[in-house]
């Protein structure tokens, strides 16, 4: 069992690590989150291995992430004022990256999770709802709130500068 689990971890760690990072925005927290989700998966490996273990790990991460936030293990650093667009010293990609880091920190874990699932994992709303164990309406609400908030604090992430300037 351990070998199979080990193979699974070796094969899927890169992708899972990326998701963990996007969910937390912090490498240390991302490691802890992935470790916790994998530990949970390991305990139920016999049951999980014949299904979709990666989906199980991701689901565990999503729920664990929200749970941590609730237990204040993750301090949300909500800034009072919206972060401005990236400065001119950075390339467009770097500017976007910095904006994303700052913006993600200002979303709630739920919003961030929906955002990651929808726009990084490219899941449909129904698939996100299934992954999170909630209704499609809930996914829509959190996704809508997340995008609206991003538009307020980092409009360059959701709107082209040219599009924004025409408004």
């Amino acid at each position: 069992m351990s070998e199979t689990f080990h193979e699974f971890v070796v094969q899927r760690s890169p992708a899972l690590s990326r998701t963990a990072y996007l969910l937390t925005g912090d490498h240390q927290l991302a490691e802890d989150l992935l470790q916790s989700a994998l530990a949970r998966t390991y305990r139920h490996w016999r049951r999980v291995r014949d299904g979709d273990p990666e989906a199980y790990v991701r689901r565990a991460m999503y729920h664990q992430h929200v749970s941590w936030w609730r237990r204040r293990r993750v301090t949300e650093r909500l800034e009072a004022a919206p972060v401005g667009p990236a400065g001119g010293d950075h390339s467009d990609a770097t500017a976007l990256r910095l904006s994303l880091d700052a913006a993600l920190r200002r979303l709630t874990p739920r919003q961030r999770t929906v955002l990651v699932l929808r726009y990084y994992e490219d899941l449909t709303e129904a698939q996100v709802a299934e992954a999170l164990g909630c209704s499609v309406g809930t996914v829509k609400r959190h996704g809508h709130d997340a995008v609206r908030r991003l538009r307020a604090i980092a409009p360059e992430l959701v709107d082209r500068p040219s599009e924004r300037s025409t408004r």
Binding site: R18, T19, Y21, L22, A93, L96, L100, D101, L150, L157
Partner: peptide
């Protein structure tokens, strides 16, 4: 752009 930023951040 959001998708791009997410992928670049994850990369």
């Amino acid at each position: 752009r959001l998708r791009t930023a997410l992928r670049e951040a994850a990369a």
